[in-house]
């Protein structure tokens, strides 16, 4: 693979370890950072998510893929506490997370981004970044009146924020309102802001959605860089080229279940994955299927 000469030591290590792992749904991994068991979320009668068992290998870049409505974002919401499952248990670093408030999940080191970017529009780019830092003394209401208590920490945070912005080539924008950024820049900002929390596991929900191709390459490099610095990355993505390029392991969901797991090259050739994406009848012409327009109720004559 041409890309392999760009791989860092942690990438090679993760790929070597995962190369030993069987390619089947729910397979155990040697050193999982995240383990989920029997996580079920129903919306009415529909089981939007029904995951029997899944593990995410520490130090890996794992992609979570699947057709629209497969339940990928719901899994993110459930695991990070933004939504509550009907049943199920999951652990992060061995710590049970069921019922833990989302802000506590983030503090434990499991930080997510959102599919619809949540840049804090009327805050400057730099303030967006600073907000990500945890354990800030100045965030206590009484301490805000005593700046000498937090000024030095604020300077450290600002230095760290500028460092990250520089890495993401956003430093010239630091004084701009986040709302004035382009879609791609917002994605970058959101990722950089999540890094301010100091995550062990960063969960990116469609980091490439709406990003122009010119930015895509640099975003990919940033995600690889995050892993080389020691974090684990779990991301949802539709862009198969991207998944192929950066992920060590791919988990495929369809209709709420995990239907396949494995390295990207293997998974994408899996017939059940191709079926899930394109439908079992994708070789037939559309007019042959039972869902043609003319048979729908109230259809045109």
């Amino acid at each position: 693979m041409a890309a392999s000469d760009r791989l860092g030591p942690r990438a090679l290590e993760a790929q070597a370890v995962l190369g030993q792992v069987e390619n089947r749904p729910g397979v155990p991994k040697p050193d999982p950072i995240l383990v989920a068991d029997d996580v079920v979320r129903r919306f009415g009668g529909l089981a939007a998510v029904d995951v029997e068992h899944v593990e995410v290998q520490r130090g890996s870049i794992t992609a979570l893929i699947g057709p629209n409505g497969a339940g990928k974002t719901t899994v993110f919401n459930l695991l990070t506490g933004f939504d509550t499952p009907d049943s199920g248990d999951w652990t992060f670093n061995g710590r049970k997370l069921a019922g833990v408030a989302p802000y506590k999940v983030a503090r434990l080191g499991m930080v997510r981004t959102f599919q619809l970017t949540k840049a804090l529009s009327r805050l400057t780019v730099l303030d967006n970044m600073r907000l990500g830092a945890t354990s800030q003394r100045g965030e206590k209401i009484w301490a805000s009146w005593l700046p000498f208590l937090w000024r030095s920490q604020e300077e450290e945070i600002t230095t760290r924020a500028r460092g990250l912005l520089d890495r993401f080539s956003m430093l010239p924008k630091e004084a701009d309102f986040a709302g004035s950024l382009s879609g791609g820049q917002r994605k970058l900002l959101e990722m950089a802001r999540a890094l301010m929390v100091g995550p062990e596991l960063i969960m990116l929900d469609e980091p490439m959605a709406g990003v122009n191709p010119a930015l895509t390459q640099s975003l990919l490099q940033h995600i690889k860089g995050i892993r080389e610095e020691g974090a684990t990355v779990l991301f949802v993505e539709h862009d198969m080229d991207m998944v192929h390029d950066i992920s060590d392991w791919v988990i495929v969901m369809a209709q709420g279940r995990i239907i396949a797991e494995g390295p990207p090259g293997v998974v994408m050739k899996d017939p059940s994955v191709i079926d899930a994406y394109l439908g079992a009848h994708h070789t037939k012409a559309l007019t042959d299927s039972g869902e043609s327009l003319t048979t729908s109720p109230g259809g045109e004559q």
Binding site: T80, K118, L131, A194
Partner: peptide, 18 residues
């Protein structure tokens, strides 16, 4: 900064551990 963040998007602020 935190309260202004909440005004803009509460979930984003939650996701940052507040």
């Amino acid at each position: 900064r935190v309260i202004k963040g909440i005004r803009e998007d509460e979930n984003a602020v939650v996701s940052l551990g507040k």
